[in-house]
Amino acid sequence: MDNKEKQILVTAISLVLIFGCYALYVYNKYIAMNFAILNDFKFWGIAFLILIPVTIVAQIIIHIIFAIINKMVTNEDMVTLRDERDKLIELKAIQISHWIFTLGFLLAMGSQAIGMPHYSMFITLIVSGFISGIISEIAKIYFYRKGF
């Protein structure tokens, strides 16, 4: 496994960890004590808005830690160069991720169309965003390994 693939794997694992920890934190702190909060739009707005910077900052920290550990273990520097193949793979992965999120968006709207509770829409949106992010990273590894 080369450095690029390792970086992608770290991104995927960190996404799972960050999302998992954040979901657990929000559930224990707000939802477990008061289920009625699920129907509060303000709660969902804040939850979404906080998740974005938390994910970005945590990803940066995890990648810095990974780069340091990788340097100590393998004595190799991380590859920072992005060439035409990297950009093409990224575009293809983003395209796949976009379609998955679109499907999630349609499901979220569908849940409202059939009269499901409002929180099901937010949960579907947040889960589809998470799944599309993970699939995007898996797609990158697939394209790096198999080629196209």
Binding site: R85, Y144, K146
Partner: peptide, 13 residues
């Protein structure tokens, strides 16, 4: 480019 790109080109990937 990166070495991985050269490898991929050589292997027809």
């Amino acid at each position: 480019v990166t070495r991985q790109t050269i490898v991929a080109i050589e292997n027809g990937k």
